[in-house]
Amino acid sequence: MRLLRRVLLLWTLGGAAWGLWAQPGEPARRPHPLEQLRRMAPEERERVLQNMPPERRQMLEERLERWERMAPRRKQHLDGRLSSFQQMKPEQQQALRRLARRFQETMPEGKRLEGRRALTMLQGLDPEARKRVLGSARMRERFSEQERELLREMAENMPD
């Protein structure tokens, strides 16, 4: 089961990113670099990352460590989200990154939590239902017009 999952994951991760990083002449598909890093023993990782600029390296290591601390099902879920994301067209990916940044910058801190929950709910709806929910008194009460528009755009651009 674990092996199957890993193979599937590598396949999707590797497949999606292939065009970007495959080099002509490379023998076979290698796992996505992220997956390679995850699998490395600490000393090995240390060697591989030793020439990185310290700030970037610290950020990368922190993120790897956070991932390692997650429960297995959580890892699986997030990797699934990532692989769906990576299967989107590059311009769609870029659009979501932009929207996510706008969410962090413009959604007031006190509303972000509700925003994240609303987004999760909206994702599961078809466009018609989404429109209905976003137009409901309850949503209008909680979010401004721009905020609801942002949530709608994000829900539309989220990976499957």
Partner: peptide
């Protein structure tokens, strides 16, 4: 095991995206 600088950037990008997706969930 060696990773090219370019590959490390890909790992960084993927981690960045993973973080973004995580932060969009409750």
């Amino acid at each position: 095991v060696r990773l090219e600088a370019r590959e490390i950037e890909q790992a960084e990008r993927a981690l960045e995206d993973l973080e973004m997706l995580r932060q969009l969930e409750p």
